[in-house]
Design a protein around this nucleic acid. Structure first.
Lengths: 142, 142
DNA sequence: CGGCATCCTAAGGGATACTG
DNA sequence: CAGTATCCCTTAGGATGCCG
């Protein structure tokens, strides 16, 4: 979100001046919205996680994710670059070589993300169980 | 994303048996995908965060988010319920009263999420700066 | 190699109306 | 009150082709 199809970048489409009722809770909502708008797309976290390993060039990332389309990889990287999470370095050689690295900011985010990854890993089974339980209950009342 | 329009629930549409090259990294990718598929939609995190405060009934949640449509709130709650993150309690009274609460699993997730919220809060300014910097650079080369 | 630009579809999600 | 059902539009994002 933020990167437009035409290549321009939306600065602030959904009014940043929201929060008509300034209460602690509303502020948090706003922060979460920001967060989601930044990372809740299909690929950002994946790319960040990969770059956590170190510098990668475009094609490497593309190979390592490979379900991603070239277009979306580009878009995602631009997005992350804009937010100051990754650095894009173009080497003036032929054939061109472009490296992507996490910035300090990006690395700090990675730490927070790892928490969630850890959680997922730890509770994967519980979730699977909850799901099949739910589905079973639904099916029986069909 | 899991919840279909017709009310049924997709059990496993994007093949869960992926990971053709079993390496530590691919597994992580898979976990992140799971994670994203679960809460990277527009509202889940927001609802979880709200329920972190305690039990809420449907209308309360609707009022507190209020940009959300009734439809999406329902869908989101069903989704979270299915994953075992929230409990839905129907009180047999008229007018009906339905309470939503975080399960233990949900609360444990909340902790992980808070880490991200904290990160967002802490780095909000840096991101804003990075953005305007990026946009400015773009504009100057127009 | 590392991209844009274009086209096009499928999914997400809002608005509205109806119901127990 | 707490939903469901329907309609419809907007967006994400895949496929493909061209370019420095």
């Amino acid at each position: 979100m933020g990167v437009m199809e035409d290549g321009t970048l939306a600065s602030a489409r959904h009014t940043d001046v929201a929060d008509p009722a300034p209460g602690g809770r509303d502020t948090t909502s706003c922060e979460i919205r920001d967060l989601l708008d930044r990372l809740a797309d299909k690929w950002s976290l994946l790319v960040i996680e990969l770059l956590g390993t170190g510098t990668h060039r475009f094609t490497e990332l593309h190979r390592e994710i490979d379900e991603i389309s070239q277009r979306m990889l580009t878009l995602t990287l631009r997005h992350l670059e804009r937010d100051g999470l990754v650095t894009r370095t173009v080497h003036p050689v032929v054939p061109p070589r472009v490296d992507y690295t996490l910035t300090d900011l990006g690395r700090s985010l990675l730490v927070a993300i790892e928490g969630l990854v850890w959680w997922t890993r730890a509770h994967r089974d519980e979730i699977a169980a909850a799901r099949s339980g739910y589905d079973a209950r639904r099916e029986s009342s069909a």
